[in-house]
Design a protein around this nucleic acid. Structure first.
Ligand SMILES: [Mn+2]
Ligand SMILES: [Mn+2]
Ligand SMILES: [Zn+2]
Ligand SMILES: [Zn+2]
Lengths: 148, 148
DNA sequence: GAGATTAATGCAACATTGTAGCATTACGGC
DNA sequence: GCCGTAATGCTACAATGTTGCATTAATCTC
């Protein structure tokens, strides 16, 4: 009895969206699925190149936008005004994020939900909330401690 | 008996930071002080031009950066990856923001503080938290209702 | 599997937002 | 009013993302 796959097959997910199942989409989605941390465009382009599948910058932008539209990935805008991506949709799992200001990495904090109720001024209709913590991650904390 | 000024004089604030009190800094800070909503670079450049004080793009970037450094203004990064500015510092008043996804305007929610305690994974050291609500503002809500 | 259809890709050019270097201007101390 | 220096303007550049169009390849039909 084989252990269940940690993620549904990338190809199956893509097919179930009704889009074409292309090498690019499969490769990008698998890269996202295999990463614990969120990745920016450069990270993903480098991973593609390392897999022997170099791609045009524009194709990568369009592929990632498509994955987000389809709910197969979600996007976070970093304080460096660059987008970072992670596998999995956002619907039903609105969660907080942690940005390491030192190394730039972003972590999904699935345990902290952002759909609690807050009192907003009259007339303001919130549709979603974003909660982002800024600080140092364990790696960078260790490095800083070691240097001192 | 004159009513107290709604804000301390821009020139005085700038002088008390030890920097030079220039036309540019005064004009920019006053524009920020007189606006209820946060403003982006284009908004501010347009307001300067309307006051007969057109400026170079770069000067505006540097002036705004300086105001933020001095704690005379604070900055928010919008989902359109553009910065928006508002008069007043951030220290001691970490607050949430509301982004209208329809018109792009940003509102400071001074009443909602972001320094509450949350349970983060071991090793992650938060230094500040950002809480941003996305949705529609009263103006855009009215427009939408009227159109229907 | 071969051919037709058209979505996806690659390429070049452009847009937006922000930075860096250096010459010129103007603020503020005297 | 002069002078030294901080602030400004100008130019060129960097990073990130977008648009238009020709080419390629995924899927459909046979
Ligand atoms: Mn996430
Ligand atoms: Mn604010
Ligand atoms: Zn880190
Ligand atoms: Zn609005």
């Amino acid at each position: 009895m084989p252990a269940p796959a940690p993620h549904p097959s990338a190809a199956n997910l893509i097919a179930s969206c009704g889009g074409r199942v292309t090498r690019t989409r499969i490769a990008v989605l698998e890269i996202l699925q295999h990463s614990q941390r969120s990745l920016n465009h450069d990270d993903i382009a480098a991973a593609l190149a390392a897999d022997g599948l170099p791609h045009d910058r524009v194709t990568l932008y369009r592929t990632l936008d498509w994955l987000v539209e389809q709910g197969l990935a979600h996007r976070i805008i970093g304080p460096d005004r660059a987008r970072r991506f992670k596998a999995g949709g956002e619907t039903g799992s609105q969660h907080a994020h942690f940005h390491c200001d030192r190394c730039g990495h972003v972590l999904c904090l699935e345990s902290i939900k952002t759909d609690e109720r807050f009192e907003l001024p009259a007339g303001y209709r919130p549709e979603r909330a974003e909660l982002v913590f800024h600080g140092t991650c364990p790696d960078c904390g260790r490095l800083r401690a070691a240097k001192t």
